[in-house]
């Protein structure tokens, strides 16, 4: 499983990161180094081993159905790079 320029480009697109063309090769090299290294995991037989879903013995917490949050549109807008009234504003999204 070798990572090439195209793979890096595709992954960067998925991750919404603008990666300049001239960095693709270098990144591919770095990622290959890492993926070659992690390939040692293939030595281990994991047949029948469950994937970890909770690190410690703890049951999921549930909350009661109450309205106790919201009503803070102004506070939400305080950090917004662009907003109008209490809408966040982004460049037009074409459907």
């Amino acid at each position: 499983m070798s990572v090439d320029r195209d793979t890096v480009r595709r992954i960067a697109k998925l991750a919404r990161l603008a990666v300049p063309e001239e960095r693709l090769d270098q990144l591919a090299g770095e990622l290959n180094g890492i993926f070659t290294w992690v390939e040692m995991l293939n030595e281990v037989d994991v047949t029948g081993v469950p994937a970890m879903t909770s690190v410690v013995a703890q049951k999921l917490k549930w909350r009661v159905d109450e309205v106790n949050d919201g009503g803070q549109a102004q506070a939400l807008m305080a950090n917004a790079p662009a907003h109008e009234e209490t809408f966040f504003v982004v460049p037009k999204v074409v459907e």
Partner: peptide, 27 residues
Amino acid sequence: LSKSKLFSGASTQFGAEPNAQVSFVDA
């Protein structure tokens, strides 16, 4: 049908002012 959202305590009522029913979790 519930009063609050799946993972936050903000209201689910229809027709509120924009972003009035938003917790920091929802945002």
